[in-house]
Amino acid sequence: MSFVDQSIQIGSLYLKNPVLLASGTVGYGNEIAQFTDMSKLGGIVTKSLSLKPRKGNPPQRIVETPSGMLNAIGLANVGVEVFIKEKIPFLKELDTTIICNIAASSIDEYVECTKILNSVDIIQAFEINVSCPNVKEGGLIFGNDLNSVGRITEKVRAVTKKTLIIKLSPNVSRIADFAKVVKDEGGDAVSAINTLVGTAIDIWTRKPKIKNVTGGLSGPAIKPVALAKVLEIKRKVDIPIIGIGGIMNWKDAIEFMIAGASAIQIGTVNFINPNAGVEIVEGIETYCEKCSIGKLSDIVGSYQI
């Protein structure tokens, strides 16, 4: 029996531990459940949902880069209606927290999606994706505009009392300004960061390796950038942060928490080691025991600068 309290509180959202599976890297939970015990995780953030189904981008959608990968999936998803009918029954059986990620092409669509999903009991929080780099409408057009992020937060806030998290883009010059707008408009937390815009070119054909020309860079290659963004927000804005970006193991997770993240999400690593989340929870446990930390949340933002 463990004496380490890994529980985390973000707004009204209670997590049994800080390890969440990131949106877009675990679908709706069913595939990864074959490899890992979901009940040991803090929660799962489902693949971005839009009002109507989206087919996604044509191949090639992904390419590997040094210690990272570029993806341009294009928000392929089943849409809100099919999600509720076909995916919720499985998610209901999981003994873990369900956070629903929403991506949209207009402010109205964000609001409409949230309204519909708000009535689904097992969804305990919303993560609003204003930072997908791979779609023409919505995505980054919102994500790097302070005014848009503010309006989306305000309008979505008005239709749900559930915990509201805004997923921020790193493709901006001052991410803390965006976190401040989220806080001012009633958001409960921010997730940082979404992927960085990147590309790769085949030198023989001179064509981009990704059909969409650019994609979102993820994986260990982006960890230092993500950490710096988390730190920047932590030092300037008083809002809970969910740290994301290249976390591969428990050491990375602890590093993000020290930099200011209340919880963390893992993404790319799920593709390589679908049991990574559980291993991270166990690693955090051992770390806390070694360092005589009784309550994990005490280390959040404990950097010595």
Binding site: G27, P59, N71, N270, F271, I272, P274
Partner: peptide
């Protein structure tokens, strides 16, 4: 097709269905 996970979570390896829809 290039793929990351191999079991359906990354959505990285689409192939057109016969109707192309």
């Amino acid at each position: 097709c290039a793929m990351a996970c191999g079991f359906g979570i990354c959505q990285g390896c689409p192939i057109d269905n016969a109707d192309g829809d």
